[in-house]
Design a protein around this nucleic acid. Structure first.
Length: 639
RNA sequence: GCCGCCUUAGCUCAGCCGGUAGAGCAUCGCAUUCGUAAUGCGGGGGUCGCGUGUUCGAGUCACGCAGGCGGCGCCA
């Protein structure tokens, strides 16, 4: 006998080997019908799985979030079954869940076409209608390998070879079809339901390695109900409207053209936004003791060889050659330049830490497939900084940086998606001991600043581990923005030294850090975050003074001049159009404040303020309006 | 870089089985002076991404290239 404890606290005895379905049936007929899975001591299990031990049990029905994960994974299995029925020459590989859905990777000589998706979906619905029972089998490892190799499923055989020896090899069968899978699964394909949709096709490398074969990936989304699916599709559609490329074009912020792939042409409004952001972060940094420098755009290849960048990145660097045969590289980053300034003259321990900042342009020959609007570009600049310090200063400097970053993100009202600690990569410089110290120090500093990190192996820079601060774009993709990197390597390779208290030469440590990261990328993320409707202090155009009739033209000019004198970014709209037309146009252009002036306002020295997103108006005297808007338009660090 | 898809007016998009290009918005002109999300009328605007081929004839079909989009890979 085993004891099962139910969520209401009651404990009941059952025979060992009882299944979740039996347990549900013992409660009610309807629960047996609705049950999809059970959870035993936190572990999800198939409804038909015999229970050999007792514990806390929950019956999982369709409405539960745990069920959704299983529905998605089962949808992936139904997808795989449909694909193998329709395209028998296809091998299955893996099909995990992702946010809002799933994918399945297939190995097939001929790629799928977009036209195949509706056919596959139709077959998937048939499989759901067939209501194939899903059952779990435990296989012998050697037999399983031989079996999958024998039927030409070489990827599956390879996966089994990689499964640790103490783990059971489980195969799930649904109808004629079967797949190696850990489970759990729904009782039958009917429970998958039809609230799914195949969304996109993509190529993906086997095991994420470019050296391996490229598989055909089919992405899909699946939900517990049609209403949830419809809501999801609407949400995605809405989110796509926030795309910074669309908003940027609509607001006339920037453009690209073929001759400058990955190179931004910033228009006046976009550049105003960019400079406003840059000036803000520059002030925040100056207040923290940073000193700003400017280093050359083009430097001899020899310097990049010494720093180690040439070896790892020369294909990704733009280079040029003089008629004399000198090979120069356009700088992809500022670090070696900053070390040159540090190295100029003799440094004392008394000067440390030196916090050196630079906002100069950088160029990287990013591969064609990696460019993405203004978020990933070839020409960029960072709110870059390098802190030269002693080992003892690392932790305090790191914590101060994380604090500063959090302050800036709070000012900008962006939310961190995740903070990752990128650990030592295969290709690296420096000793194991240095890496261990560096990794642990970064984690401690982050924790001290109240930030939990997720350790990710193999993702660090060649010279040191990185803290990565990730933000989300409109449709949920995440992008690394801020970063903090601890580096023992470059000071050594570029021979940076300072004179210590003991009169001897010492090696400083370098902290590479950026709060926003690429200003271009951050601007892109901000555009999507605000959908172009920026807070007053960031908005490229803060106020439009719009007239109702030409009687008010002179007064509008007076009002605009007064607002401009107070430092506001003001446009004036004297066009011979109805005020409704003007309001609509400037609202669509996301101008935060429209100051409407008609004959009445002109006579009384007033303005009628209309805020973006509200249809009321606030009638103030011109002086009051100037005072109010000036306060509102003050950047957060100057308040 | 790899896989798939897309590319027609400034923008968003129509254009069937190959027969010589269309709408809305924007722009320009005229009228209108109208109090908070589109005033009316009229005009101009296109080597249909680029190239080659098939054809009597190509926006439409084929091939190549470029750029873009989605994903993978890469990201100092």
């Amino acid at each position: 006998m085993i004891d099962l404890k139910f969520p209401d606290g009651s404990v009941r005895p059952f025979d060992a080997g009882v299944t979740g379905r039996d347990v549900a049936a013992s409660i009610s007929k309807s629960l047996e019908k609705k049950a999809l899975l059970i959870k035993l001591d936190g572990e999800l299990l198939d409804l038909a799985r015999p229970l050999e031990r007792g514990g806390a049990i929950e019956i999982i029905t369709r409405e539960r979030p745990e069920a959704l994960d299983t529905i998605r994974h089962d949808t992936a299995h139904v997808l795989a079954e449909a694909v193998q029925e329709l395209f028998p020459d296809t091998q299955v590989t893996i099909g995990p869940n992702v946010e809002d859905g799933f994918y399945y990777d297939f190995a097939r000589a001929e790629p799928f076409s977009l036209d195949d998706l509706p056919k596959i979906e139709a077959r998937m619905r048939q499989i759901v209608d067939r209501d194939e029972a899903i059952s779990r089998e435990v296989w012998d490892r050697a037999e399983a390998i031989a079996h999958f190799d024998g039927i030409g499923e070489t990827y599956k055989a390879q996966i089994i070879r990689g499964i640790p020896g103490d783990q059971a090899i489980t195969v799930y069968r649904q109808g004629q079809w079967k797949d190696l899978c850990r489970g759990p699964h729904l009782p039958s394909t009917r429970h998958v339901g039809k609230a799914f949709k195949l969304t996109k096709l993509a190529g993906a490398y086997w095991r994420g390695d470019q050296a391996n074969a490229q598989l055909q990936r089919i992405y899909g989304t699946a939900w517990a109900s049609d209403a949830d699916l419809a809501a999801y599709l609407t949400r995605i559609e809405e989110a796509e409207k926030r795309d910074h490329r669309k908003v940027g074009a609509a607001m006339d912020l920037f453009h690209f053209q073929e001759e400058g792939r990955g190179m931004i042409f910033w228009h006046p409004k976009g550049w105003t936004l960019y400079r406003t952001l840059q000036n803000y972060v520059r002030r925040r940094m100056e207040a923290e003791g940073y000193v700003e420098v400017k280093t050359p755009q083009v430097l001899d290849r020899a310097l990049w060889e010494r720093s180690g960048h040439w070896e790892k990145f020369h294909d990704d660097m733009f280079t040029c050659e003089t008629p004399d045969g000198e090979v120069l590289a356009i700088k992809p980053m500022n670090c070696p330049g900053h070390v040159q300034i540090f190295n100029h003259g003799q440094r004392s321990y008394r000067e440390l830490p030196i916090r050196m900042a630079e906002f100069d342009g950088l160029h990287r020959n990013e591969s064609s497939g990696s460019m993405h609007g203004i978020i990933r570009v070839r020409g960029l600049s960072q709110d870059d900084g390098h802190i030269f310090c002693t080992e003892e200063q690392i932790e305090a400097e790191s914590k101060a940086f994380v604090d500063l970053l959090r302050l800036v993100y709070a000012d900008l009202k962006v939310e961190l998606q995740s903070v990752k600690l990128a650990l030592r990569p295969d290709k690296r410089f420096g000793t194991e001991e240095q890496w261990t110290i560096a990794e642990d120090t970064l984690e401690r500093a982050a924790n001290a600043a109240g930030v939990e990190v997720e350790r990710i192996p193999n993702e660090g820079a060649f010279y040191g581990p990185k803290l990565e601060f990730h933000l989300r774009d409109a449709i949920g993709r995440t992008w690394q923005c801020g970063t903090l990197q601890l580096d023992y390597v470059l000071p050594e390779r570029l021979d940076a030294t300072y004179i210590g208290e003991d009169g001897a030469k010492h090696r400083p440590v370098m902290l590479h850090r950026a709060i926003l990261g690429s200003l271009e990328r951050f601007t892109g993320v901000l555009i999507e975050h605000y959908a172009g409707a920026f807070p007053l202090w960031l908005a490229p155009v803060q106020v439009v003074v719009a007239t109702i009739t030409s009687d008010a033209d002179d007064y509008a000019a007076t009002a605009a001049a007064a607002l401009r004198k107070a430092g506001l970014r003001v446009e004036i709209d004297l066009r011979n159009e109805k005020v409704g037309y003007k309001v609509r146009e400037h609202s669509l252009a996301k101008v935060p404040v429209i100051a409407v002036v008609g004959r009445r306002e002109a006579e009384e020295d007033k303005v009628a303020l209309r805020r973006l997103g509200s249809d009321g108006q606030q009638v103030l005297t011109l002086d009051e309006a100037v005072a109010l808007l000036t306060i509102e338009a003050t950047p957060p660090d100057l308040r």
